[in-house]
Amino acid sequence: GGVGMPTGSYVAPKTVWLAAMKAKGLEISGTFARRGGIIQMDLSLTNKAMSVMTDFAIQFNRNSFGLSPAGPLQVLTPLSPNQTIDVSLPLSMSGPIMKMEPLNNLQVAVKNNIDVFYFSCQYPLSLLFVEDGKMERQVFLATWKDIPNDNEAQFQIKDIHLNSDVASNKLQGSNIFTIAKRTVEGQDMLYQSVKLTNGIWVLAEMRIQTGNPNHTLSIKCRAPEVSQFVFQCYELVLKS
């Protein structure tokens, strides 16, 4: 964002989640945003049918982190043919939980006066990274030692031309916090923490070598199934 824009986590561009040809003329594109702890689904609804659309409502299937609408879908006026409206749906994390495959999958039902339509979309796990995710240094050291090596996953983040301070600042904007930095043999080692809305802590070490655009990310977590999704967020944020 530019000067004066509210800060928040990385927001992906909207993509088409429901194609008009599969939904009797209703096209839905969307993305997810976290701004100051408020989670939202940002939607664009387009009427590509010949008649007016009314009576919109939305429902989520149960999902891995209990994501659910915190209010109704506010489409206050009928949607005319060829009209698009943007709607922000506030979300809460207090819905029913069921582990999804992939973990960040969300199944959505949208209805209007014509029919009910279903689609799936995936949210970036960074939607769940809370603002108080900076772990105490002492706790980090103890936890890092305590989590078994089998729970460590390693990833390559390729083609990133940022030094460690810039990378660290960028990540902090998405609630990935740097706790310590050490330089060993020309490599900057960043120790970082992330806390998910459900209380899961993720610990990370990012190695940045001067002149090498490929960084090594090691992730330790007691729930190792989240690691690859945290890695995806690093890539998205650092490449944005």
Binding site: R137, Q138, L141, R182, V184, Q187, Y191, S218
Partner: peptide, 20 residues
């Protein structure tokens, strides 16, 4: 002093990760 200990512990962690 306690913080010095933490600083040192992070240095040891980084060293051990670079030269296991």
């Amino acid at each position: 002093e306690m913080d010095d200990g933490l600083e040192e512990a992070f240095s040891r962690l980084a060293e051990s990760r670079t030269n296991p």
